[in-house]
Nucleic acid binder design. Structure first.
Length: 452
DNA sequence: GGAACTCGCCAC
DNA sequence: AAACGTGGCGAGTTCC
């Protein structure tokens, strides 16, 4: 308990200094991009209002039309147009999220998706940067007292959910954020830290082997899609591996089960293709796992679901048997004592679901690896009088506003602290840790990558 | 007019 | 038996 307190006490101080450092925002850029996005939104909005969908909408809601209202959209699609909802919300209404709308081929629905995407960038990110900045500087908050798993959170603005995967959104949003003049942004993130921490808790031999030497995403993709080879550098085959990773391995570690996973796996199969050009779904049909209709759409996937069930069973009861045993022990212990403990000294009590109990120690401790490193690097930077400053953190990643002349020293320091000092301080770490350091150009924004 | 809720969506 | 973990936030909606 005392070491947990110490970590958060020191952590709060180090994060405070990062908040203090803050980051530069290109105000004129944000305003320019906002205007550009508004133009695009208006363009799509005009097109939308001319559609048949919009006519029905106006007829039904008359003076009360609100194009942003998903309730109204849901009503038009699922009550007026009598479309069967492809998906329901938590409260049982017809869903209008991306996943649902993509399955509806009604002219205008595609425009709504475009409008939403652009507005998200404009209103959630650029608008927030402009609101939060003062004189071209913003200082996102980092909190340690809000999260059940003893991770951190961020707000005003949230620095931890700025777009990354959607390349256009990434460029627009991260393009607004800069280091101090003459400096560069350096980011360092732990690779697969949650899996590494899971190794430490479960001590599962196969998991340790896979995390250190193997490629479990590739292995699982090959089993799930019945492939005899998989080249992850081939653009089509890469998506099979992505399917194994994002459609099976990650969801499974979070506590999902085969029925949901099968759906995700099929989505990835749609965008995957083999080296000889065979589309993913056709490949699955050749293997007898799905039946396709004349249009190439899935008619029946019962065999595939059953196959995923068997792979899941093997995954937990054979491959990662030790992990399963840890899950049982930990869940039983929680039921008996009413709390779950972390290696880092934190104790989580209260009413929790099974998946929460099993995820919290892993998620929390993984963040504590980052936090310990963050504190140590902050301490060294003060002691050595660096001009460079830590200015943010995203769960398993830290960001440093770096003076170019200090770059090489900082790289070495980060590498040493995260992969050598940390495992010494946290003696429960029984697997090697890897850190990936990325450097952005001098005076370059967060979107620009340094060319090597 | 503000609190609390729903829905949707961004990150790890 | 159970059935995807952790957040913040914008916009709409409902309640008081």
């Amino acid at each position: 308990m005392k070491k947990a307190y110490r970590l958060f006490h020191d952590g709060a101080l180090a994060l405070m200094r990062a908040e203090w450092a803050g980051m530069r925002v290109d105000v004129e850029y944000c305003k320019r991009k906002k205007r550009l996005l508004s133009k695009k939104v208006n363009f799509y909005q005009h097109k939308l209002e001319k559609s048949k969908l919009a006519q029905l909408w106006k007829k039904r809601f008359r003076g009360k039309v609100n194009w942003n209202s998903n309730q109204q959209l849901s009503h038009i699609l699922y009550h007026i147009m009598k479309i069967t909802p492809p998906k329901l919300t938590a409260t049982g209404a017809g869903a209008t999220d991306n996943e649902a709308l993509e399955k509806i081929s009604v002219p205008g629905v595609d425009l709504i998706l475009q409008i939403r995407r652009l507005k998200k960038i404009r209103d959630t990110y650029l608008e927030a940067f402009l609101r939060e900045q003062v004189g071209g500087w913003m200082h996102p908050h980092f909190d340690l007292h809000t999260v059940r798993s003893y991770r951190s959170s961020s707000s005003s603005p949230n620095f931890q959910n700025i777009p990354k995967r959607d390349k256009e959104a990434m460029r627009v949003c991260r393009g607004a954020i800069y280091p101090r003049l003459g400096h560069l942004i350096l980011s360092a993130d732990f690779s697969g830290i949650e899996v590494m921490v899971a190794c430490c808790y479960t001590k599962d031999e196969r998991l340790i082997y896979d995390a250190v030497h193997g490629d479990m995403h590739r292995d699982m993709a090959m089993e799930l899609y019945m492939l005899d080879s998989l080249d992850k550098h081939h653009p089509g085959e890469r998506n099979f591996r992505q399917g194994g990773k994002n459609g099976f391995v990650f969801p499974q570690f979070y506590g999902d089960y085969y029925m949901n996973c099968a759906q995700g796996l099929l989505e990835w199969a749609k965008v995957a293709y083999r080296k000889d050009g065979t589309p993913g779904l056709v490949h699955l049909q050749d293997k007898g796992l799905v039946k396709l209709d004349k249009k190439g759409e899935i008619k029946n996937c019962d065999k595939f679901i059953e196959h995923v069930r068997i792979v899941e069973d093997q995954f937990w009861n054979v491959r990662y048997k030790g992990y399963t045993e840890w899950k049982e022990r930990t869940w039983k212990e929680y039921q008996k004592r009413g709390y779950v403990e972390m290696f880092t000294g934190f104790r989580c009590g209260g009413v929790m679901r099974r998946n929460e109990v099993l995820n919290i120690p892993i998620q929390g401790s993984a963040f504590h690896c980052l936090l310990w490193s963050f504190i140590e690097i902050d301490r060294i930077s003060e002691e050595e009088g660096w001009d460079s400053r830590l200015f943010g953190e995203i769960h398993d990643e830290m960001l440093i506003d770096t003076h170019p002349e200090e770059l090489e020293h900082i790289k070495k320091t980060v590498e040493r602290v995260t992969t050598v000092e940390l495992p010494k301080a946290f003696s429960w770490i029984i697997v090697p840790l890897k850190v990936e350091i990325e450097v952005h150009p001098i005076d370059g924004c967060w979107a620009k990558k340094e060319s090597h």
